[in-house]
């Protein structure tokens, strides 16, 4: 019968030769193959000690940004909560009192800002929606927890370290995904 395609693989149904029936040569061949694996590098990454580098577009936990003077950028406009397809973000706004100018950049700020990390799908729409460049996704993911409420991240979990008091922590939290301080995430 003529083959319909050129991908046909003819299966040989010949009885085994004596050499093949001896079985031992095949065993030695197999053992040589497994032995050769001793010298191969294992691809394991020992997780807590070694971490796999994330891709530059990785979207991890949200971070609440500060400006270069250490003031919170968020103005509690609620655009991120509106944009969020998983409805993971809740916030409560408050008015900045006189004397709090060093804490909050705008006249209104988020007194409470919570993201439920179990609901969050890490799509990054909050980051794109934010007109103040206050929220963006970092390069880490949520560590495991024993309770559901442990996954509801508040302001103290997400707020970036003060660049003035802790410049190193700030830089670390900013990561390589950060946009430059005055640029906006949604120029495009």
């Amino acid at each position: 019968m003529q083959a319909l395609t050129n991908r046909v693989k003819v299966v040989s149904r010949k009885p085994m030769t004596f050499w093949e029936r001896m079985y031992l040569p095949a065993i030695f061949k197999g053992m040589a193959i497994t032995f050769s694996h001793i010298f191969k590098k294992d691809p394991t990454i020992s997780y807590p000690e070694q971490k796999r580098p994330f891709s530059p577009v990785f979207r991890g936990l949200q971070i609440l940004n500060r400006d270069e003077e250490g003031r919170e950028r968020c103005t509690a406009c609620g655009l991120c909560a509106v944009a969020c397809p998983a409805e993971a973000i809740t916030m409560e706004a408050a008015e900045r009192q006189p004397g709090q100018e060093h804490l909050y950049r705008e006249e209104k700020y988020a007194a409470k800002y919570e993201i439920n990390m179990l609901r969050c799908i890490f799509c990054g729409l909050c980051e794109e929606a934010c007109p103040k460049d206050a929220v963006y996704l970092s390069e880490t993911f949520a560590p495991s927890n024993f309770q559901r409420k442990g996954f509801i991240y508040g302001k103290d979990d997400m707020l970036i370290p003060d660049p003035k008091q802790d410049p190193e922590g700030y830089k670390k939290a900013l990561g390589s995904r950060a946009k430059h301080p005055e640029g906006h995430g949604n120029e495009h």
Binding site: H37, K41, D42, T44, S46
Partner: peptide, 11 residues
């Protein structure tokens, strides 16, 4: 087993 299978084994 781990070494033959390119793994790390108990460590």
């Amino acid at each position: 087993a781990a070494i033959l299978q390119d793994r790390k084994g108990p460590n």
